[in-house]
């Protein structure tokens, strides 16, 4: 981790075009106290942003592999881990792809149909303790996790648009994942 990255934490959410949204994020030391403070900020922003189901550190101006999500209450949710924070997540298994429309806080005004695995296994560590964790997710939770991990890999849903007819303008507030 580089100290200069820690100073980039911003209020609000970074929107495209922005270099952090197209740059792979760096792995973090989960026991680092600064990581914990970024996690707190991630959760605060996710909880206070209507419709926000997940968020990553790069979206807050920090190029670290940290993500949070909470798909509770979404109509497409099947598996639901509640509010969850993962450091250094990696998808280790994926199966059964499906196409669905998604949007992003960092790409306001656009949505697109994107193919994602509907069943995934993700491994990572818990911030703070560094305890290894494995997440099995399906349906909307799986989509949300993959969307967030894409952010950590410097990818936007725009990089996975299913076709020329699959990109749509949306009104403000019409966002997902």
């Amino acid at each position: 981790m580089e100290d200069d990255r820690r100073t980039c934490l911003i209020e609000g959410v970074v929107t495209a075009p922005h270099h952090l949204l197209v740059t792979p994020a760096a792995s973090v030391d989960p026991s680092d106290a600064v990581v914990s403070s970024v996690v707190r900020h991630l959760l605060e922003v996710m909880r206070s942003t209507p419709g926000c189901r997940g968020l990553t550190a790069p979206q807050l101006g920090v190029g670290w592999r940290l993500m949070c999500l909470d798909v509770s209450g979404h109509p497409s949710t099947r598996s639901c881990s509640g509010e969850l924070v993962i450091a250094n997540p990696e998808v280790v298994e994926a199966a059964d792809w499906d196409v669905a429309r998604e949007g992003c806080l960092s790409v306001p005004g656009l949505a697109a149909e994107v193919a994602r695995a509907t069943q995934i296994t993700v491994q990572g560590v818990r911030p703070g303790t560094g305890e290894p964790m494995t997440l099995h997710a399906d349906a909307f939770e799986a989509r949300c996790v993959q969307h967030q991990i894409d952010h950590l890999d410097g990818l936007l849903f725009l990089d996975r648009v299913a076709g020329t007819r699959a990109m749509h303008a949306v009104r403000k507030g019409g966002q997902a994942a």
Partner: peptide, 17 residues
């Protein structure tokens, strides 16, 4: 064979077959 462009704020997006 097919192309769509969208502008959202300062973001320009092109998808083409």
């Amino acid at each position: 064979t097919s192309m769509t462009t969208r502008v959202a704020g300062n973001l320009f997006v092109l998808v083409a077959d």
